[in-house]
């Protein structure tokens, strides 16, 4: 199956989304699932693409922030409905914690990442948007994950991300970290190069590759 969603079908989805019509959107998603499109394709080529377009429309003041929020929530609810039909992968005894950095209100990217981990059999703990850094540190201590993923959509939260990475590096020397999100498209990746055990994941393909080749960091 190629990974290209028919442009007409995408347009139809996008128009319904922007007008707040959840059910037709759900039907289109269902149709695509029945046509054997995989989750990763739907996440990137339908959800991500449409939400990026919505963001652009908001930036150009073509739509209100309320419409932007509505489209986000519809997308989240579609993801939840899809989650009910996702196969439960064979567990591989690895745990990942996914969170959005402090003050970051966007959470869809993190959810997509969490779902991909789950499909690969990881025990996935998704914390959500705007995770206070200190609480995240305590939580990591409590659940002892094999990996932590941090999502950042708005570049202005780079200081919060750096603070979080610093704290995780100093508290958990051998804990691998992945970071990603729209903010990195504006060059944030160059600002995290100094952090230990930290990998920037630009898209879901790279994430799958990372999961496939994941290795624990050996003790020194």
């Amino acid at each position: 199956m190629d990974n290209i969603i028919d442009e007409d079908q995408y347009r139809q989805y996008f128009n319904n989304l922007i007008q707040g019509r959840r059910i037709p959107c759900y039907n289109i998603v269902n149709e695509l699932l029945l046509s054997d499109f995989d989750i990763k394709t739907l996440y990137q080529n339908l959800f991500q693409r449409s939400l990026y377009s919505v963001g652009e429309l908001w930036e150009h003041n073509k739509i209100t922030v309320a419409t932007e929020h509505m489209t986000t929530l519809i997308t989240e609810s579609l993801m939840n409905q899809m989650a009910a039909h996702l196969p439960v992968g064979d567990t591989i005894n690895k745990r990942v914690v996914i969170a959005s950095v402090e003050d970051e209100p966007h959470q869809i990217g993190g959810k997509m990442v969490a779902d991909i981990f789950e499909l690969n059999g990881w025990d996935t703990i998704y914390i959500g948007a705007n995770t206070p850094t200190l609480e995240l540190i305590d939580f990591i201590k409590e659940v002892q994950p094999n990996l932590v993923g941090l999502s950042m959509s708005v570049y202005f939260h780079i200081d919060n991300l750096k603070k979080t990475l610093e704290l995780i590096n100093s508290n958990f020397e051998r804990l691998p970290l992945i970071v990603g999100g729209q903010a990195f498209k504006r060059g944030a990746d160059s600002r995290i190069k100094t952090f230990k055990n930290t990998t920037y994941i630009p898209n879901l393909e790279a994430l799958e590759e990372y999961i496939k080749n994941f290795k624990e960091i050996e003790s020194i």
Partner: peptide
């Protein structure tokens, strides 16, 4: 108010997601 509503909706969404996952398990 809109932001607050969005936050609550997100929370609701996350709870729903959690419930779906629990149900699957």
């Amino acid at each position: 108010l809109n932001s607050e509503m969005v936050e609550l909706n997100q929370e609701l969404n996350n709870v729903q997601r959690q419930l779906i996952k629990e149900k699957k398990l």
